[in-house]
Design a protein around this nucleic acid. Structure first.
Lengths: 231, 231
DNA sequence: ATTACTAATATCCGAGTAG
DNA sequence: TCTACTCGGATATTAGTAA
């Protein structure tokens, strides 16, 4: 079904033609769908031909009613939008304070083996460095546990001649509602579970004007499925 | 906003781009929206230009996310469809049995002063005759009272040199779920309030194969507003 | 692999108008 | 008035292709 045709059907529904026949001329309908009388006429013909609306005429013009099939077309879109709007991916909010880490983030993030995967799986090449966040409240510890129960974006470990690098689990996040990035849980971290590390395509300390001790709000998006990527 | 563009935005939402960036190539998107890669590309450019989606690129292709403005566009349609689907015009169901009237229906309905108005306000030229229905249950009496509390389609009274004809109140109905017609309450009827009369563009007794004593279900549509008609 | 440009083509739209 | 036809011009789409 052509989008323009669907749009006309939708407009008719707005005019009340879903419940009862509506008396409307092609000229009036044309105004509603922002087209000419001729186009309105043609669209009605097509909608009728495909059984999505019924019409009958008298001398003054036509009466139009959306059929059950027509309502099905609208309902299909409605239900999908409902899923999008209401069944929205749940988000988890974490709050924490910025602190100076051991400055080793840059070393890790800068590794080619990680960077290639970040770019491929997260969609950005991270600024070489991590922002360390310490969670303060019990509630935030709890939320972090909950977050980790959800499927993560997995960054595989790898090794070079000198040493090996462990796997990472990432979650997409929005930081302070402004910057899109990712939250990482490094397995072999020096920090306990009250710490999370953030990466982003930009230097977060600069972009968000952060100093040690500043509060940061991290909103994590949980996806039931992995983002599509080439296999 | 062009319907085709809205459709692309909607498809992106279906793909999950409302919550997080989605990795999808123009070729993949083209398959979803049933178009060519070139059209998908062009539509994305337009959506980005109008601030409805955000994109960023890496060597393998682009990542796409619907912006707040984009979500607003989808939400507008969603809420309208919700009204259409759920806030649907309330319907009242009446059940009654067919009985032979005084055969005067044809005389009344056939009057030019009525017919002209039926055609104009109901959208059909009624078969010259009415189907008389007697309500049986208390619940149906109740429902009839309720129905009469709603605004009706008013057929004005008129007179000729010989006599005068009273005003009618009509409601749009579907009879036995099959025929669209109208329920009339004639003010100066011989019958008490347990009787309603139905008109339709066809002879109901024939079309629905009805005999005296048969049960008939009448579903009345209540419209807060009158159907649009020329003033 | 991608995205997106240009040019050729297909489709759609609306002015004019008949019935 | 109304609907809906024809037809030429406008718009959108795709093929071919560069980067």
């Amino acid at each position: 079904m052509k989008p323009a045709l669907w749009n006309t059907l939708y407009s008719l529904a707005e005019l009340g033609a879903s419940q009862r026949p509506v008396k409307i001329s092609t000229t009036q309908l044309a105004r509603v769908i922002h087209s000419s009388q001729q186009t309105a006429s043609r669209q009605l013909i097509q909608l009728e031909k495909t059984g999505l609306v019924e019409r009958h005429f008298n001398v003054n013009g036509g009466w139009i009613r959306i059929t059950e099939n027509g309502m099905d077309e609208l309902r299909r879109v409605y239900l999908n939008l409902k899923t999008v709007m209401e069944g929205a991916t749940p988000t988890l909010k974490l709050e924490g304070t910025v602190f100076q880490g051991l400055q080793e983030g840059a070393y890790y993030v800068g590794q080619k083996g990680y960077r290639r995967q970040f770019t491929e799986k997260l969609g950005f090449d991270p600024y070489p460095g991590t922002l360390n966040i310490r969670l303060r409240s019990k509630a935030d510890f709890q939320t972090r546990k909950e977050l980790e129960a959800y499927p993560a974006i997995l960054i595989e470990g790898f090794g070079n001649e000198h040493r090996s690098f462990g796997p990472l689990r990432c979650y997409r996040v929005t930081i302070n509602g402004q910057v899109q990035g990712a939250l990482m849980t490094i397995q072999r971290t020096h920090y306990d579970s009250s710490v999370v590390e953030l990466i982003a395509p930009v230097k977060l300390r600069e972009k968000l004007n952060l100093k040690d001790g500043d509060k940061v709000v991290v909103e994590a998006f949980i996806s039931g499925e992995m983002p599509p990527h080439r296999t």
